[in-house]
Design a protein around this nucleic acid. Sequence first.
DNA 1: TCTCGGCCTTCCATGAGGTGGAACTCCGCC
DNA 2: GGCGGAGTTCCACCTCATGGAAGGCCGAGA
Lengths: 282, 282
Amino acid sequence: MVEDMVPASRFPADLTATTGQRTAAGRVLSVLDVFDEDHLELTLSEIGRRAGLTLSTTHRLVGELHGWGALERLPDGRYTVGLRVLELGTLEPQMLQLRDVAPAYLADLQSAVDANVHLSVRDGHDVVYLESLQRRSGAPVLSRLGGRWPLHATATGMVLLAFAPPGVVDEVLASPLQRFTERTVTDPLVLRRLLAEVRRTGMSELHEAITLGAFAVGVPVRGPLDRPMAALSLTLKQGGPVTAHHVLPALHATARALSRAVGSPSEPGPPAASGSHRPRLA
Amino acid sequence: MVEDMVPASRFPADLTATTGQRTAAGRVLSVLDVFDEDHLELTLSEIGRRAGLTLSTTHRLVGELHGWGALERLPDGRYTVGLRVLELGTLEPQMLQLRDVAPAYLADLQSAVDANVHLSVRDGHDVVYLESLQRRSGAPVLSRLGGRWPLHATATGMVLLAFAPPGVVDEVLASPLQRFTERTVTDPLVLRRLLAEVRRTGMSELHEAITLGAFAVGVPVRGPLDRPMAALSLTLKQGGPVTAHHVLPALHATARALSRAVGSPSEPGPPAASGSHRPRLA
DNA sequence: TCTCGGCCTTCCATGAGGTGGAACTCCGCC
DNA sequence: GGCGGAGTTCCACCTCATGGAAGGCCGAGA
């Protein structure tokens, strides 16, 4: 299916050398780079080919990565990403701050409005899902925890872009903007207008930008500095009985609850102990 | 607080050289190793000191890792783990298979019995949480997504150990077994008896093994080969009105539902399309 | 204002150690 | 039995990672 939608590299193409080839560290990273959604399990030779390394080098690097726990070895000898990477990834600070408090709120939201729920942050020119809840009934939406999507094509992305530093907006709008459906907005001028609209209304609304038959509504989640640090969105069936107006109150309420839990000053009174940002112990 | 409970290295101490020192790849990994729950944000110099590298080497390696996205740079110049690592970690196959289907079931379970819910898999001699839901009211329990704990001290760990290859059991019982409370069982002979009990009854029950005032009940989640691939547990207040007997039916039901969703043969009829193991698109 | 210390960055000569070709084994398949 | 592909080990060459040194920056303290 859609192959190239996940950007291969988050940096200008000609800088690929930075990570790809020359250096030893680059070679290590290129081994890790080899794994993606469509290549979850690879043989040693496949890793070597995809990473552009000789077999003996691959053998040694993969051995070290396996020893460390970055790669797992399956019974059939193939390699996959190891749990050690997942473990390390959960140390990502935004993850830590939101992940412990978010699930309960998101579950509430989902049970209130039967829709897909996404919690995302911005990473460079992409949006990354911290949490995504699929609705149990009805049509699922294309997404995945940790999944990476262009900012301009997602409701959360547009919210995060609207409140991002101006430099980021310029960079994103100057770069080639991927089109997913005929309704994906890729015109920089139109996007600028939409972003201003998002800033004015405090919400974003995208129709069939990635998936035909679905539309999404997004709102910001504000952090301790009152700056939008994440975004929350609902994805609903296009043309169905439920419109943005129906879900906006619940969406806003959940976003505010999350903001409060994370310690946003504009949402009065953090609920629990304020010192540590992760709940501990009994 | 408890510092050394997360094992520094998952491999014999004298093999630290494998990852720690000599090789270039080892140096890269040692930089990543520097981050843990108590060291989420570090300066370049701190990274260098903790990794045992000179500043110039650290500078170059951190620069490459940052360029790749493995490390993030905060406004104040310090470094943290980057979202790219989280993204990569979610490719871990067990993660992928369970994470998309699990949340809904776990949320149901949690709303049925107001307790902490954990979904874990075994990684070497440890248990790693794939998913953990904190109960909203009442005493939380010490845990974290991606958190790593000894097998013998957790309910899910005991289930996973009980159904692990005999070699693993021998290794674990031969290694030093960490004690968290006076009720943590660390006697290999007693543990062997308990493991047999777990195999016989299909459930584990641990009382105050890590946290005083809490007990946990665990059951296996079976995968496509009908082999336990994960474990599900509930953590409850010790001495409270709710005992293991009260929650076992719900716990078993959820575990079976998960097994079915993942395609266990003993649970009839997978619910959806069986080909791909991750739900896609609308 | 000047000094000191800590942190970050850049540069470069040296030699440690990463690299990749070759040789070998172990499959499964024709 | 022969063949092709995958994985593993070994080793001589020479790349390229290393770490010392030097310089810039900032904040604290005198």
